[in-house]
Design a protein around this nucleic acid. Sequence first.
DNA 1: ACCGTCATGTAATCGGTTACATGATTCT
DNA 2: AGAATCATGTAACCGATTACATGACGGT
Lengths: 169, 169
Amino acid sequence: MQELPKLTATSYIVLGLVELAGEATPYEMKQAAAASLGNFWTLQHAQFYTEPQRLAAAELLEEEREQGGRRRRRYRLTAAGRSALEEWRGEPTDDLGELREPALLKLFFGAPPAPLAAAQLRVHRAKLAAYELRREQLADTGGPAGPRATLEAGVAHEHEWVRFWSERA
Amino acid sequence: MQELPKLTATSYIVLGLVELAGEATPYEMKQAAAASLGNFWTLQHAQFYTEPQRLAAAELLEEEREQGGRRRRRYRLTAAGRSALEEWRGEPTDDLGELREPALLKLFFGAPPAPLAAAQLRVHRAKLAAYELRREQLADTGGPAGPRATLEAGVAHEHEWVRFWSERA
DNA sequence: ACCGTCATGTAATCGGTTACATGATTCT
DNA sequence: AGAATCATGTAACCGATTACATGACGGT
């Protein structure tokens, strides 16, 4: 096995997406991510090109390059890649994320609440609506449990934001 | 006025902290941040050394260096710095943050929910307790409104996490 | 055949993280 | 006086964002 250059969240996102798809090009990863993962954790599109290369160098992915045409790079999990992913997934974490809301930062430093609240209510209401629509579409049983659970988290927190900013409007 | 090298959230945090304190050394900024800002947006300590230098180069802060002893650098807002901060603060944002919870990422990719929930419940309950303690201390009227409001947001979202993970334990 | 948009990729820059290093202070 | 911890700072590395650039395809 090769050197393991510390795996980041980005690494596991790529590994996870490749596992879901069986095999994927960077562009396909980007498309897949946009759907549901993108609701709570987004990556720059360039990272779907650079990160798989790092993972391939570490032999967690294998890369196959198309001959002719676009010469796309297509990635697949190696055995080492699969077990790295499984190990990560099996190990619970007590890491806490951070809120890191730009609007909250402004509020903290004394921005007038009302105009902020107006802007934030607009976008959070829109996002909440989109989530709820999506939840209906999944109709409570569609698809794997993971994405459905994260969608629930998204709905709950958006509700919370709407409540929070409503009180300040 | 100098070139403005695009200001980031980090920049405004530094500017905001300096404004609150009147003047501050990097170390003092770090201390001040830990208190309440740190609950939803943390910086690496080295950034309190590098970021002020960038801001000083852009003439948004002025730097004064102690003679003798530790030769601390002490920063103060310039007029340009103050107005940059005020402009940022006055402009509402419709940016949305992301959840970016590591635990949510694992859940998304199919981690078994129960052990994750156990670990997350522990830490989120602890954080919630700390927030509520702090809220009592502030006793509803202490200090400026901004930090109090963000504390409310923190409490609400921690409640939400506790609920979320409780359902999966 | 042309134009616009989607698809695909690389290169340069820059902010952030990690690692290192030394000076003060306090405690025993 | 020595050890431990807190305070203070710099340097190197690396991941992430931004900018740039071109290829393919669908429609008119």
